[in-house]
Design a protein around this nucleic acid. Structure first.
Lengths: 179, 179
DNA sequence: CAGAGTGAGTTCTGGTTTGGAACCCGATGA
DNA sequence: TCATCGGGTTCCAAACCAGAACTCACTCTG
């Protein structure tokens, strides 16, 4: 009853299957707040990392070339303790590196690691969504393909079919089904 | 890794220009917590909306076809008050709709609106990043192109050049031409 | 018809996280 | 020597989050 009721032809992207039906997951957590026993799924862990108001902004600032503590601070308007905590978390998670760029008063720069750069599709997707849906008529920035200046599209690409497609054509499968 | 579909390979994504140098920047906020005076930029508003641990998970559940309060609740393991607050926020923001599906005890279903579906590239990007960087060897879900079953790539696409490209080839420009 | 069950929330109550100010520390540099 | 800068940390109040329990309006079972 739950699912099918609406069957109709909405634009829906609603059949991204999650491959496990629902057999196992949902199990116990301890009584204590914050330390759940069930193993968090991958996305839950992803969001535990980047799912807050600042982390993505820090990443975006880093993508724009900002590297120093104070520059992040004044560019984002973020409170210093929060920034320190976010940078530490990102460095610990391997998304950024902290390099000494000057010894005597030890000074560091924060740069994106490859894993951090890999997150840029997500950052770009959020930026673009905001520009499309939240800008009140005046878009502040348009992201374009640098070589030609055309506004970029973001989409999914199937190498086998050599085609792009939208969210409705996505399915989730389990990799360990037979392997 | 990321770039299978991207022609060039690259190191740094650090020169996405942000078009404003810093002309108008970072100005005042009031003394009160939470009500800043400066007009938040688009991404800041985007993140104020979806930038927390649960909203993206709620959206992902909705993409998977979940529609009812209790189903979200048990699928995600989210506390009921938080879920109620998130759904209300998403409905208010126009990302989801709340439809009556039964009168007598009034019962509602929550569905993604087109604006919510538009966020799926971001959700997918986060899921994929997590699968690539956070799964400890065992990936729980692989997203594939439904018609052919090939694992999908996500990338940027330039219609003018008919080419895909990676994050390094992105530039930000001001929409009003000058600059 | 009483009682159990269901779906969709809200209230209550603590623990956790944020955000802002202020402070610390080690070099410069005037 | 004192001020400044870059990079943090400490302290504290306000906001947010999570869980349990409760409400409300039905419907179903015996």
């Amino acid at each position: 009853m739950t699912g099918a009721a609406t069957g109709e032809n909405e634009t829906v992207a609603a059949n991204v299957d999650d491959t496990k039906g629902n057999g196992s997951q949902r199990n116990a957590r301890s009584g204590r707040r914050g330390e759940r026993v069930r193993e968090a799924s991958t996305i839950e862990r992803t969001l535990a990392l980047v799912g807050d108001r600042w982390t993505i902004l820090v990443l975006r600032a880093a993508l724009r070339g900002i590297r120093r503590f104070n520059d992040f601070c004044s560019d984002l308007g973020i409170a210093r303790p929060i920034l320190a905590a976010r940078l530490r978390k990102l460095v610990d998670a391997g998304l950024m590196t902290k390099d000494l760029y000057q010894e005597h008063p030890p000074r560091y720069e924060y740069k994106l690691s490859p894993a951090g750069i890999d997150l840029s599709p997500a950052v770009v997707a959020l930026v673009r969504w905001g520009e499309q849906h939240l800008s009140n008529g005046l878009r502040s920035t348009v992201l374009v393909h640098a070589p030609c200046g055309t506004e970029l599209e973001q989409g999914f690409w199937c190498e086998a079919c050599s085609t792009t497609f939208g969210p409705t054509a996505i399915r989730g499968v389990s990799p360990d089904g037979h392997r």
